[in-house]
Nucleic acid binder design. Structure first.
Lengths: 338, 338
DNA sequence: TTTCAGCACTCTCGGCCGGAGAGTGCTAAC
DNA sequence: GTTAGCACTCTCCGGCCGAGAGTGCTGAAA
């Protein structure tokens, strides 16, 4: 596409992003192209509309980017917006003061992301195929009731009440926990499975069985931690003035399964993914764009971070800030040995 | 007030609750009072309006209950609606299958409450003045970095990364944990404080200090767990058609401090509290009603459960279901020895 | 060939009007 | 105390109109 067409498309996207009002040839002329006449701009706009990048709400309204228009913009025209120091500092600060466990971290990251992008955010916890067990602990609740505490990588605590077939005192449990730690702590989950296979019948095997059950749930991702935040930011946008639109988006966000699917799509894909309007698999995200990236403390452990907003979002700002948050969170997680 | 006036007020509230449309004398006559003429009903309606219980959006519209009207209704006219078996079973089921720790429990309870009342819900974790420590565990992360794991009443796990002044091996930490458990596990938090005072300088005192810090945060309630759910239910109501109304409510719900205040108000008060429209301290809850009750495993440990919806809510149903959820949750928590 | 001034045209938006409909309050009779 | 009847008020909705914004087209200038 000729340079001038590109420039005009870029200008339309930028203008519409901030004003939320269809942009006309006159506005473009006075604000972006003073040495062009509005008539010339009009003919370029008509061309861009023919190419499918722009559309008009009605015959005599200004132009609005189509989904393809946004697509062209993010693919070819967008340059990352520098992040103000204030915002950088804010991100650093929020991430550094986050709790040291994955759950707290993910929640904080989602909150921060929503705050700095002024949109809704989603975040899934970094997760790998084989979980590592850092520590096991057993607490006696009743003679035949044991609380199993499992510390996984990411300082992720998991607990489960286990009703055992035989009674055990706390002292016995403490000894047993020590034995379990010696054999499986610091190892990947398959170690626990191996020990389970070879263990003789008894309390130890019983508890190992439950350890494996917890690991299974965790590794299968059926309990994959996915949080979202910042829906309030969407309410400010004119696109979401009637709350039925919000309702649809909220449904998607609360439907954890859908988000998990988004996650799986991304893993293995390029590291930044932008899904615009009708490109979304869910029709409830019509008019919405989703910007996704992966993050995590290592290559093995990856989660997804995403921003959800109207297609009329400030893509260059969103992408820059999303990546900044992802970088901060990844660094911090690596630092914590998560 | 005469019986007939009461009956008419009740009918107006009931009718408006379901239809969301101002109710006129004719509708009342055909649906509730076939042997009265609409003229008679009109004069009663006029009286009720004079008394401040009803109002009209405009001269020739039907009547709508005022906040005082709702107040009179819930104070004198409401009788609890029986809960269908299906709903009862649902509540039981959700609560029974909830995680065995307080956090998971509270989240599940909020979800269930939102679901069965078709409104937004809030829940705070049961909390008492003196926390009990069930178990302490120490995990070595780095030579001079320890993960302190604290199991409090309610199977509430708290963790904190502690940077110690002196290095310690996992074996040393395990021994130390055993000693700490012997001295403070199963006791109230003041025991930990006493031990801290009398402990000689060293790793043990250092870690006890952190234990106390964690307890402090917990007991001060500055980290009091408050969750909310079901905002999507509000979006269905005509009162929240323009999303700016939702925005205000969301602000309140996300403002944990405000909810904590609500909680404190309720503690020591009667066991059911209904706050209607302008009775709310926050003007952002104009047009909203909040129904609150306390719950918890014991007299000492109490949290708050609440429903937030438009003032035009089905109070009798809401109250009945709220109490049912509170009862189920309390029972389950007591059963788990939370 | 590109640019541009001029102009007719189209469409929305806001205000205004008027009729239909809903619901009221009042009055006079039972 | 109750009720039929009636005038009155107000909203809602559709149609109408003028202002304004913005377009597409055309013919001339560069």
């Amino acid at each position: 596409m000729e340079n001038r067409k590109q420039a005009i498309l870029r200008a339309v996207v930028q203008e519409f992003t901030t004003s939320a009002v269809p942009v006309g040839s006159q506005a473009l002329q006075t604000r972006y192209f003073v040495n062009l006449s509005s008539a010339t701009i009009r003919s370029e706009l008509a061309d861009l509309a023919d190419l499918g990048y722009l559309t008009q709400p009605h015959t005599s309204a200004g132009r609005v980017p189509t989904d393809s228009g946004y697509r062209y913009f993010v693919d070819f025209l967008m340059d990352l917006e520098p992040i103000p120091d204030r915002v950088k500092a804010y991100i650093q600060d929020e991430v550094r003061t986050a709790p040291a466990d994955v759950e707290g971290m993910v929640e904080r990251v989602a909150m921060t992301l929503a705050e700095v992008t002024r949109n809704a955010s989603v975040a899934s916890a970094p997760q790998g195929a084989l979980a590592r067990i850092k520590h096991v602990d057993l607490v006696s609740l009743e003679p035949k009731e044991v609380l199993l505490i499992l510390l996984l990588e990411g300082n992720l605590l998991r607990q489960q009440v286990v009703n055992t077939t035989q009674p055990a005192t706390q002292a016995q449990l403490t000894r047993l926990a020590a034995r379990l730690n010696a054999s499986i702590a610091g190892r990947a989950s398959d170690e626990a499975r191996r020990h389970y296979e070879s263990a003789p019948l008894g309390l130890e095997k019983e508890l190992l069985g439950r350890v494996i059950a917890v690991l299974d749930v965790y590794e299968k991702g059926s309990e994959n931690l996915v949080v979202h935040d910042g829906v309030r930011n969407l309410l400010r946008q004119p696109e979401f003035a009637e709350s039925s639109r919000v309702h649809q988006v909220l449904e998607v966000l609360e439907e954890t399964r859908y988000l998990t699917v988004l996650l799986r799509q991304l893993i293995g894909d390029s590291d930044l993914q932008i899904v615009i309007g009708s490109e979304n698999t869910s029709s409830r995200l019509q008019g919405c764009a989703v910007v996704l990236t992966s993050y995590g403390p290592s290559e093995r452990l990856k989660g997804v971070l995403g921003v959800v907003g109207p297609t009329r979002m400030a893509y260059s700002q969103t992408v820059a800030r999303l990546q900044a948050v992802a970088r901060s969170a990844s660094d911090r997680m690596a630092e914590l040995g998560v």
